[in-house]
Nucleic acid binder design. Structure first.
Lengths: 215, 215
DNA sequence: TGTTTAAAGCAACGATTGTCGCACTAGTGG
DNA sequence: CCACTAGTGCGACAATCGTTGCTTTAAACA
């Protein structure tokens, strides 16, 4: 099994001449588009390598050889997704920024078909996909930290506010309710969660003392 | 216990006489134990009907006939899990109750191997398992509402506090960080999340107005 | 104790999944 | 323009998954 991967060219020296040519990139795009389309139509359960290859107009073997398994396929989708120019909303206040952010999350999670939900589900199956998803989320939350820094600059929040914890507190309830608990979507859930986090932040829940423990 | 005798809801012809006898219940227990053991050892990816049947000392066909697919198997595990006598912690204050609850969640999610995480992952694959998980979570959060009502009785919280939202706000960050984001576990994450929720609650973030608030 | 009959065991099957060797296409560089 | 070769197409293969008809076991009841 592993010996096959480590075959003659398995050593794979980094300076190997690769082919950035048109066909490789084109097929990659076709396959990735097919994955997203299949995820949207049949969810993760119905995501088979065969269907992806057929939709992409590519042979099964190509998919298996380049991406290995479904997990590698999903990991590539995650990596491709982080190549956009998404920016967190900038509405003028902390709570409305968080509310707008939550609105986006809510929309993405309740859209039918929800590719996001399917991707989250898929990330549980493969370690590669999970790591890629982790990278994507890290990237997203890092971009969102500007929301907090703007609020600090405005004087809405004290300095030394832990941006990451604030953002997680604001967004986690949505993911929890919609992804894990699977409760019916509530239109004013995003606003409520944003308000809750803003209130907690104003109460100093996320100010990080240099070394003092919270509890 | 009564639910344990009925087995999965898959095949239940109403007028047919069932067999609550020893063998049926015994085999169910063997199979369910095998599922949990396999989940712990190999995670959800390595959960095959064959391995479960072999470990339980049962034939494949039996598993397929009684539980249908892996999803039905997991659903039965969820249903069996809700037959315990779990009670939320009662430590004397809202924040410490939430912290203790979060400690339990944290321990369950960071235990290796984590059956809970594997079950969550599995629930994404099958509709039946997802519904069973939803029932289990509903049961757990319903039991936890007494934490809030006790706090209200003590005067820590105003009446008309939305218990469910408060509980979700307190626990969601843990699930988000450990299950979805997969960040490295932080020992004082449970306490921080509990304190955040308690602060937000004290600030009136979860007080629900008498009537559903308009736009 | 003997009869009845759910439920489990058993073996064989079709369908699907993933792998391998080889031929071929099409970028890449001369 | 031609030679080279990474990457793809193709067909066949083993392994696994889930199903089906039938037989056997054992719980339920007289």
């Amino acid at each position: 099994m592993t010996a096959a991967d480590l075959g003659p060219e398995g050593t794979r020296p980094p300076p190997t001449r690769r082919r950035p040519g048109g066909r490789t990139a084109r097929i990659r795009q076709q396959v990735l588009d097919a994955v997203v389309a299949e995820l949207g139509e049949h969810g993760y359960d119905g995501l088979t390598t065969d269907a992806v290859a057929a939709r992409a107009g590519v042979h099964r073997t190509t998919v298996y050889r380049r991406w290995g398994d479904v997990g590698g396929l999903l990991a590539d989708v995650f990596d491709a997704a982080s190549d956009d120019d998404w920016q967190p909303p900038d509405t003028g206040s902390l709570e409305s920024d968080l509310a707008a952010l939550n609105q986006e999350i809510h929309a993405a999670l309740t859209a039918r078909p929800s590719v996001v939900t399917a991707l989250i589900a898929a990330s549980f199956r493969s370690e590669k996909a999970a790591q890629a998803q982790q990278r994507l989320w890290e990237d997203r939350y890092a971009r969102c930290e500007v929301i907090v820094s703007r609020a600090v600059r405005r004087g809405e929040l004290p300095p030394r506010t832990d941006a990451r914890r604030l953002l997680v507190a604001a967004t986690a309830p949505l993911y929890h309710q919609l992804v894990l608990l699977r409760t019916t979507p509530d239109p004013h859930m995003p606003g409520q969660a944003a308000r809750t986090a803003a209130l907690a932040a104003a109460a100093g829940a996320f100010t990080e003392p240099p070394s003092t423990r919270g509890a």
